[in-house]
């Protein structure tokens, strides 16, 4: 089943003097349960594409369908709601809320969704255990290492049971041991719970683990390889 369809998407930035064609007619689909990496050099259009997939930015042309819903048809308030239910985000710099504990960070979205306390607790602990941080539930981000913070971020992204997780350079700030642990956890979640992961990355360690690698250059797909 297709969770994400990208159809002839263009993104043109109009600065005062030059037009920048950041994404230039990309069409790709992702199936449920994929573990895919979008790679390419800096300025190739990876982040722009990822922002559009995540509904944070609109394509100039073309369509993006998440679970058969065309993102461009949604009002901005509905889009935020749609993101909360369908897309999980993992950012390069973790972006946890520093005043909340690991548990509260993971719980945050479920709180916004007004889930019951019992459900929130169970799900949060289940996710924190899955990323190996059950013991650190009450720690604030400042007390956690970068790798641990990113694992909390993955747990947070999974909290609302999204259709897929978008991870923008998730390992860029991590050492190799943390990267390895994080990738193992994500692989396991992908394998056992059929969670779809889409990364944008330069990191070879991530590329090696990916089962599909989409390479972008100058806003175009130049290769799409499934292993």
């Amino acid at each position: 089943m297709k969770v994400l369809e990208i159809k002839e998407v263009h993104k043109i930035y109009n600065s005062s003097e030059v037009k920048v064609h950041a994404v230039n007619g990309i069409s790709i689909d992702f199936e449920e349960g994929e573990f895919a990496a979008i790679v390419g050099p800096s300025g190739s259009g990876k982040t722009t594409l990822l922002n559009m997939i995540g509904g944070l930015d609109n394509p100039t042309e073309g369509k993006i369908l998440v679970n058969n819903t065309d993102l461009s048809t949604l009002k901005s308030s509905d889009l935020i709601d749609f993101r909360m239910k369908n897309i999980g985000f993992v950012f390069q710099s973790y972006n946890l809320i520093p005043v909340l504990t690991a548990k509260e960070n993971v719980e945050f979205i479920m709180n916004l969704q007004k889930r019951s306390k019992k459900e929130r607790n169970e799900r949060t602990m289940e996710l924190l255990n899955a990323v190996g941080l059950g013991e650190r539930a009450e720690s604030r981000p400042a007390k956690l290492s970068g790798g641990q913070q990113q694992r909390v971020a993955v747990a947070r992204a999974l909290a609302s049971k999204p259709k897929f997780i978008l991870a923008d350079e998730p390992t860029a700030n991590l050492d190799s041991k943390s990267t390895e642990t994080l990738l193992e956890i994500m692989e396991e979640l992908n394998r056992e719970e059929k969670i779809t992961f889409i990364f944008s990355t330069h990191d070879n360690r991530v590329v090696k683990k990916a089962r599909r690698v989409v390479t972008i250059e100058d806003g175009k797909v130049i290769s799409d390889e499934t292993r």
Binding site: L56, S77, I80, R83, M84, F89, N95, F108, I109, S160
Partner: peptide, 9 residues
């Protein structure tokens, strides 16, 4: 980040 993960305006 909060808006991205679904905290509405």
């Amino acid at each position: 980040m909060l808006t991205a993960i679904g905290m509405n305006k």
